[in-house]
Amino acid sequence: MKISHQEVLHIARLARLGLTEEDVERLTEQLSDILENFEILQQVDTSDIPPTAQSGALLNVVSEDETAPSLPPGKALANAPQKEDDFFRVRAVLE
């Protein structure tokens, strides 16, 4: 499976990941190599096999609806790059 520069740029956009031209060049080559190795899975007959999302035996874990202390705003915001009062500050989403 060869992937193109354009596909790499499309995926980077989906992932909101900025890439340099050099990154795009390198990733196009490396991802193509890696994806080629994944083709081995097409040999496996999985027609009646259900997918496994996780290996634990637990299903539908729910917890009691109980109030408990949570982080105070000051602590929750302590690592914020930008804040204002008790809020995270972000650039305008709609311009």
């Binding site: 596909e7 790499v8 995926i11 992932a15 990941l17 900025g18 990733l27 991802l31 890696i34």
Partner: peptide
């Protein structure tokens, strides 16, 4: 740009692979 400068090459590679 946050993600471009914050993540190293292997992390970027895996994000790309997984997103794909």
């Amino acid at each position: 740009k946050t993600r471009q400068h914050g993540f190293g090459p292997e992390v970027k590679r895996r994000i790309m692979l997984g997103t794909y």
